[in-house]
Computed example of a mutant assay.
Amino acid sequence: ALQLGPRKKPRTTDPLVHHGRHFGRTIHALCNVNALITNGVIRMSERSEEPEEAFTAQERREHKVFTLLMRSVPGLEERIMTSDSEEEVHNIATMLQKGASSARSDDTKSLKSAIIDWLLPAGECLIPPIGRNIKIERGFHHERTGALLCPAGVDWSDQEIKQKLRSGELSVSGDQWPILLYSSYKYDDTNPWKGLLQSVILVKAYKHIFTSPSSVEREAKATRSGNARIHGMTSVTCASIVYAATQARFALSSSSVFSRTDTTTDSERFYNSLLEMLEDPDETVEVNALLTWWNRSVFPNYNTNSRPVSKDSALAKIKAKR
């Protein structure tokens, strides 16, 4: 009893789990990876000759996610396309799914406590206070979380509406986006793009997940090894913004378990409706401006390609001679 037992062998995690974590956070959080890969392989083999118009909008979106997944994991496409074993492909999908699910679970757990500190300006107290690890007091049951979760365009100060939201008589679907997404928590119904996905609480949630919890209250240093740095991430993606928004929204809710099929929080519809809007070609101008804003807010070393060359610099003189 006084002697050390045999040393435990260190457990090694399949690299695909590591890649799956990043895939879930930055490319797609709520997809069925096995179905995604199966359909992607079919499209690249049996349906490779079919024109783009032969596929539905949903199939095109799905294939885009599949393509991004293949690009994000070195050697994955070759490994899948040359595999003779359905079991191997299934195991690959299982590892990626495991990574995405575990990352989501880790982020849900850590944000549940952290988000309490972001509900009010520093120095102000929540009345009544909210337990850091208790969800039942949140959602529409609490004045502050209820105000943030209230759908944009709905008046939280209206006592009748507030009571209906609390009782469940007035249900909120996932595509009714909450005011917490908007800058200063203000919504302009004549310009619904104004301030969308630019709230302080969203930026804090994003930094907490991607650049490290300690970067939330101060600028992230390039040397800090958060999830973004670990995966070589130097700019935001639409999916990563939506992921942070989905996590923040859930953290404020009274639901205790994150579930795709939970009709109370309706997280899957919320996630998909936001992501589809950001990927809509008709919204390109607004989305590009939003991505630039996010990159400047989150990544201190981010530079846009559109920055003009400094006047009278050596580079300017070289360019002038071309």
Score class of each variant (00 low, 15 high):
A289C: 06
H142D: 06
L165E: 01
R79D: 14
G75S: 02
N191E: 11
D312E: 10
A205Y: 00
T246H: 03
R322Y: 10
R60T: 14
L196A: 12
S48N: 14
Y187S: 04
L4S: 14
L36D: 06
S259K: 02
R71N: 09
D117H: 12
T246Y: 06
L181P: 09
M277T: 15
D107N: 08
M70Q: 12
S212I: 02
D312Y: 11
R322L: 08
E52S: 10
P213M: 03
K8V: 11
H90S: 15
A239W: 01
D175I: 06
N288Y: 07
T38R: 15
I230Y: 10
E283I: 08
P10S: 07
S110D: 03
M81S: 13
Y302D: 15
H208C: 05
F270H: 05
K186S: 07
Y206E: 05
P300I: 00
R322K: 13
T190Y: 09
E59T: 02
W193V: 00
L315A: 10
T38W: 09
A222W: 14
G153I: 00
L119E: 11
P121Y: 03
L68C: 15
T292A: 12
S297W: 03
H18C: 08
P151M: 01
T13V: 15
W294T: 02
L36Y: 02
H22S: 11
K186R: 10
L36C: 05
P151Q: 00
K321T: 13
D117P: 12
E160P: 11
S297Q: 15
R61H: 15
V309K: 09
E88S: 01
R11L: 13
M233Y: 06
R296F: 14
N191H: 07
F210P: 00
H18R: 12
R229K: 15
I80S: 04
C238Y: 12
W177V: 00
G123V: 09
S215R: 01
K64R: 15
V287Y: 07
A54P: 04
I241F: 11
L278S: 08
T237V: 02
T190C: 10
N295C: 05
F55D: 06
A1Y: 10
A289R: 11
G174M: 07
L2D: 15
E268L: 11
A29M: 03
M277F: 14
N295V: 02
E49G: 09
S259Q: 06
R166F: 05
K221H: 13
G153M: 00
N288V: 04
T284Y: 13
V89W: 13
L96G: 01
W193R: 01
C31K: 06
R260Y: 05
S105R: 11
P51Q: 01
A122V: 09
R43V: 02
P178F: 01
A316M: 04
F140Q: 01
T38E: 14
R60C: 09
S167E: 04
P121W: 05
